[in-house]
Write a protein that binds this DNA or RNA. Structure first.
Length: 453
RNA sequence: GGCGCCUUGGCGGAGUGGCUACGCAGCGGCCUGCAAAGCCGUUUACACCGGUUCGACUCCGGUAGGCGCCUCCA
């Protein structure tokens, strides 16, 4: 078990995980008012892979990624489409499961819904009201920010001049502009509501995460994550609620991924469509999307566009080519095993996926240079293991079946033509195979067919 | 205005006080009947100005530029 260290937004320190305790990870998932985009996929990928790596290292890890299915935006989007908000939320939740499922990373250990956590949410709010950290006002309940010492410690900003609220919030009901809603009374036009001690209504934006995280992982748990745009106010408010209610920290480490950066001009023209996760997967394939998302360090912003995705396709092609020639199976020699060790070392060091991938490519080049070096034997085995850790294990899979009889016949015919030195005929057949989806690769041991990318 | 981040070779993107990151693309070669795959070479980068140091791309200060958040956002 390696010592895994993660940079903590709250303290600014890099903190080592405790291998003796369960590593509870809570990552803020999407609000389901539309299909998710690449930006939503980044935390899903980062935290899924982190949990996978921790488990591979022998940690007991539990990953929870929630679905926020109660929100102003859902009401708005549903109204625009003329369907009920529940219908829209269900549809988009299903789409989220489908789209992220296609990434091939499996599911988180828990995926709670806000609508499935109303009881704990109401209980948590009640506790806050009883303890004087929150107050009822006209059917709404607000958290009293100034009553919580330490507000602003995560986002490192002074409480002066802060104001917050969801859209056209009934700000006049607040005692202080800093306060934020825990519970919102039912309003005309909203087609869902739940009973509460303060009358029918629905949870405010931040409280559902506090409740779901505690329900799934207890409090405190180890890592709370999400996009860096959530630092303020979302995570700041989660800290305030949970710590005010329980008198102990919510999470030990706050881990935030950088934004996917889009060029507004390009987005409106050529690249707007592929920003949707499902469109990106359709266009570039799931492995390329994952490879793209891990191409930069998780904390840094990552440029989005056709070019970086196309590059990701080229990268995974190189890996796949290598694995075709060097299938997993052989026991890794010392150099191959060392590369795998360095790969894991990089991941253990604040989950440095680009550095890890550089080790993978280093191994590929070394093994291509010296295919007979016993120290590099089993490089394919080592590489497959490395890639599996970052969700690219499918690159090592042979694919369904081999060439069909028609393709094999054509290959035979081409071999015959080449034996006759009839290059025109041989190239004709190669073109024909290309039309059928096969690429011919001539090697020392004869010609081979590989599927065309 | 407040808080924070960033500026690396054609592009993307790591990293370190003194040693080739890595990938993609281009060009030149090797291999090949020609390709593909692979290999080699290649223009040897660290915004600018000072400072610390035997030595800085890597530390400190400043300048310029870019970005994120600061009522919604992964």
């Amino acid at each position: 078990m390696r010592e895994v260290r993660i940079k903590d937004t709250l303290s600014g320190e890099t903190i080592a995980l405790d291998g003796t305790e369960e590593i509870g990870i809570y990552a803020c998932g999407p609000t389901v008012y539309s299909r998710i985009h690449i930006g939503n996929a980044r935390p899903f990928v980062v935290f899924s892979l982190l949990a996978r790596f921790l488990k591979a290292e022998g940690y007991r890890a539990k990953l929870a990624i929630n679905v926020t299915d109660i929100n102003d935006k859902i009401y708005t989007a549903a109204a625009e489409r003329g369907i009920s908000s529940g219908e829209l939320a269900e549809e988009m939740t299903a789409a989220y499961f489908e789209d992220t499922g296609r990434l091939g990373l499996g599911r988180p250990d828990a995926e709670p819904l806000a609508t499935g956590t109303i009881g704990p949410i109401v209980d948590l709010i009640e506790t806050l009201v009883e303890d004087g950290h929150a107050y009822e006002s006209g059917g709404d309940v607000y958290f009293s920010v100034r009553g919580f010492d330490g507000y602003g410690k995560l986002s490192h900003r002074p409480t002066e001049e802060m104001e917050q609220g969801e859209g056209d919030d009934a700000g006049s009901l607040k005692r202080d502009p800093l306060d934020f809603a825990l519970w919102k009374t039912h309003k005309e036009g909203e087609d869902t509501s739940w009973d509460s001690p303060w009358g029918p209504g629905r949870p405010g934006w931040h409280i559902e995460c506090s409740a779901m995280a505690e329900a799934e992982l207890g409090q405190p748990f180890t890592i709370h994550g999400g996009g860096s745009d959530l630092v303020f106010p979302h995570h700041e408010n989660e800290i305030a609620q949970s710590e005010a209610a329980r008198g102990k920290p919510l999470a030990r480490i706050w881990m935030h991924n950088g934004m996917i950066e889009t060029d507004a001009e390009k987005m409106s023209k050529s690249e707007g469509n592929i920003f949707q996760l499902h469109e990106a997967i359709d266009t570039y394939g799931p492995e390329a999307v994952v490879a793209y998302l891990i191409s930069g360090h998780y904390r840094q912003p990552l440029a989005f566009g056709d070019a970086p995705l196309t590059e990701a396709v080229a990268r995974i092609d190189r890996l796949r080519n290598f694995l075709r020639d060097n299938p997993a199976g052989l026991e890794p020699g010392p150099e191959a095993a060392a590369a795998a060790g360095r790969f894991r070392d990089a991941l253990a060091d604040d989950f440095n996926t680009p550095r890890a991938m550089s080790e993978a490519f280093d191994l590929v080049r070394s093994a291509n240079q010296s295919p007979d070096d016993p120290a590099l034997a089993g490089a394919g085995t080592a590489l497959a293991g490395m890639l599996d850790l970052v969700g690219l294990g499918s690159l090592a899979e042979a694919g369904e079946g081999g060439p069909d009889p028609e393709a094999l016949d054509l290959l035979e015919a081409r071999n015959a033509a080449r034996a006759d030195r009839d290059w025109g005929r041989a190239d004709e057949i190669r073109d024909r195979l290309a039309e059928l989806g096969w690429e011919v690769r001539d090697g020392a041991e004869g010609a081979r067919l590989v599927p065309r990318g």
